[in-house]
Design a protein around this nucleic acid. Structure first.
Length: 346
DNA sequence: AATCCGGGGCC
DNA sequence: GGCCCAGGATT
């Protein structure tokens, strides 16, 4: 039996019932694919549900404010996905009368859609034989064919894309693409795959050479840099606090946070105290300062480890407008801030 | 080609 | 602590 036949048979027997598998509507497939980029199904599923409930059509999503979209995306990470999602929804609704491009090439031009997502939508919605290559596909193919080209090199990307494109079932690209990803997620897992019950174990090079645990090969990424975040949680007598919108480049773009003193090296409390005294929002005013978390909160991102302290700053009056603390839940914030807000309970 | 962009879950 | 995840954009 050829590669794709084994795969699609396995898929028909083992696939999970997932909401986006009940439709071929491009809006829902697109939404699911953006949510699932670099995200496990278990984590993304509740977000897919809330997005489809709040925005049943691309027009509903297009009509929303970006702040509303980011708020619903809160906690899922990689927030550029949400900003691009909203921008593309507006483009589809306003320029294309709600109709998505119906092929790989057209889909690829949209914001937030790259090679993987264009292939996924084109195959699932329009039966175009465009092979997807995601983390699952890299793992399945590198093991079955015993390929040790690093998957995160440009050579590897080309090599695996070409191989997947050779293997894809041109009569049934939709099932083939979803099958190989599901197979990678459930059977050909990163750790401890049960190769004894695998339908490919006779022909799998890695299994027969006992190199399953060495594949796929990946070039090591640089270690995360340490940063030191001191957030200032102002509280005025009239029950207001201050949130600022993160502008420009860097993490958490367009999300809100408490005023932040950020450094690349740890600063002692005395030095920090001087900076707080001179802070624009309370310069020259009396205040009471207390450290909320005795133990530093370590928040780990892919490329940064944030060593975080929350300082509660009680003041009589703020030098800026501020927001009532009972409205703080309306703002989209990174999970680091969200966890504090929940624990502090204003 | 290398780096940046989150957060959760696993070992 | 390191690795992985239905990747894409930027430099």
């Amino acid at each position: 039996m050829i590669f794709s036949e084994i795969l699609i048979r396995w898929y028909s027997n083992n696939k999970r019932a997932l909401p986006w598998r009940q439709t071929k509507a491009p809006y829902y497939i697109w939404l699911s694919e953006i949510i699932l980029q670099q995200t496990q199904i278990k984590q993304g599923l509740p977000y897919y549900t809330s997005f489809t409930e709040k925005f049943p059509s691309v027009f509903d999503l297009a009509k929303a404010d970006e702040e509303e979209v980011l708020k619903l995306w809160q906690g899922l990470g990689y927030y550029s996905r949400a900003r691009n999602l909203h921008a593309t929804a507006k483009y589809i609704a306003e320029e294309l009368k709600g109709k998505f491009p119906n092929n790989y090439k057209g889909l690829l031009k949209l914001k937030g859609i790259g090679d993987y997502t264009a292939s996924a939508i084109a195959s699932i919605c329009f039966d175009e034989a465009a092979a997807v290559v995601d983390g699952n596909v890299y793992r399945v193919l590198s093991r079955y064919f015993g390929i040790d080209t690093p998957i995160n090199s440009s050579k590897g990307a080309k090599e695996f894309k070409a191989l997947a494109q050779e293997l894809i079932d041109k009569k049934n690209p939709a099932d083939f693409n979803q099958a190989i990803m599901e197979f990678g997620a459930m059977q050909c897992k990163p750790q401890n795959p049960d190769c004894n019950i695998c339908p490919y174990n006779k022909g799998c090079i890695a299994f027969n050479k006992k190199t399953i645990n060495n594949l796929p090969v990946k070039i090591k990424s640089a270690k995360a840099k340490k940063k030191y975040f001191n957030f200032l949680v102002f509280i005025s007598e009239e029950g207001k606090t201050v949130l600022e919108k993160r502008e420009g480049k860097g993490i958490w773009q367009n999300l809100y946070q408490f005023p932040l003193i950020e450094t690349n090296k740890n600063i002692d409390d005395h030095t920090l105290m001087k900076q707080i005294k001179e802070h624009d929002l309370i310069k020259g005013m009396p205040f009471e300062l207390s450290l909320y978390n005795k133990d530093v909160v370590v928040h780990k991102l892919s490329h940064q480890h944030l060593y975080t302290k929350f300082w509660v700053v009680n003041v009589n009056k703020l030098l800026v407008e501020g927001i009532p603390t009972n409205q703080i839940h309306n703002y989209a914030v990174p999970i680091l801030i969200g966890n504090f807000i929940e624990a502090f309970n204003f």
